[in-house]
Design a protein around this nucleic acid. Structure first.
Lengths: 133, 133
DNA sequence: TATAGTAGGTACCTAGAGGAAAGTAACTAC
DNA sequence: GTAGTTACTTTCCTCTAGGTACCTACTATA
C-alpha cells in the first residue's frame, strides 16, 4: 500500500496530542479536505465520485481518492462499488460519521457569529503595524 | 514581516471553503499545533512562553512563536509583554477565544465515546486487506 | 476511427511547512 | 569575564503533502 495513503503515524513522541484531548479528533476529522467531504456527504446525501469532485472545487482526483479511502478506513464513510460499465461508486456517510453532525452544526454556528470578529481582529492587528515588545 | 508567519492566503479559487461553512473555522482553530495551544491556555490559564513550550511536548520555539502570533492576530489569544530583565511574556485566552470552550468540550466528548470506534474500524479495514473493487 | 464518460492508479515534481541549531538583547549572579 | 535566563529570530535543511499529467479498462455514441 502506498505510503501516501497513510497519515504520519500517530507517534506519541512527535505528536501534539499529549497536552490535548482534541488533537486526535483534529487528525481524523479536520485534516485538509476532509471537512468539506464530510460536510458535503452529510448535507447532500449519497454521492458519486464525480459529484463530489465537482462540488468540492479545486480538489484533484488523487487527493479526493486519498481522503475518501482514509475516511472509509476510519469508518466515517461507506463506499459502495457497482461493477457496471462504466463503473459506478457511491459514497455515503456512515452511522459513526453521522454522530459528527451536532459537532458540525455547532462549528457552523460558531463561524456564523464569530468569524467576523476574527476578521476584525486581524484588521486591527495589521493596522497597528508590527508587534511592539 | 516573514512569509512564514502568514497562512497560505485564503484564496477563494484554491480553497475548500466553498462547499463547506466549517472550513474557515478549521483554518483558524484546528490547524497544526493550534488546538493544543488553545486547549492548554483554556485549561491551565495564563502562561508564559516556556511553560507552554514545556507543556506542549516537541513543539519548537519557532513554531510556537508562529502559532501564538497567528492566534494573537486572530484575536483568540492575548499577549502581555513585561519589559523586565529577563523579559517576561504572558499569554492568555481572549474573550473571543473563550467562546470556543463549548466547542472544545463537545469535541472532547465525541472523542471519549467515538475514538475507539474509529480505531476498531481501522483494524477491521486493515485486516480485510487491500480494498477490493 | 475517435472521443467521451467513469473511477480511479501511478510517476514525477515542487512549494512550503516545520524541524535543528545557533544567534541576539539585556541584565544578573558568580 | 563568563555563564545563565527569557523570548524569541534567523538560517539552513529536510520531508512530504499535494499538484500535474498521463495511464488503465470498458462501452456507447458520433
Amino acid at each position: 500500500m502506498a505510503t501516501e495513503t497513510s497519515r504520519p503515524a500517530a507517534d506519541a513522541t512527535t505528536d501534539p496530542e499529549l497536552a490535548c484531548p482534541i488533537s486526535p479528533v483534529v487528525d481524523i476529522v479536520f485534516s485538509r479536505w476532509t471537512s468539506p467531504i464530510l460536510w458535503s456527504l452529510q448535507a447532500f446525501g449519497r454521492q458519486r465520485f464525480v459529484e463530489l469532485e465537482r462540488r468540492i472545487e479545486n480538489i484533484t482526483p488523487k487527493v479526493l481518492t486519498q481522503r475518501l479511502r482514509q475516511l472509509e478506513r476510519d469508518g466515517l464513510v461507506v463506499r459502495t462499488y457497482h461493477p457496471e460499465v462504466p463503473p459506478r461508486v457511491e459514497y455515503e456517510i456512515s452511522e459513526l460519521g453521522r454522530t459528527l453532525s451536532p459537532l458540525f452544526a455547532q462549528i457552523a454556528e460558531w463561524a456564523a457569529t464569530n468569524i467576523e470578529h476574527v476578521e476584525r481582529a486581524r484588521r486591527r492587528y495589521d493596522d497597528a503595524g508590527a508587534p511592539r515588545g
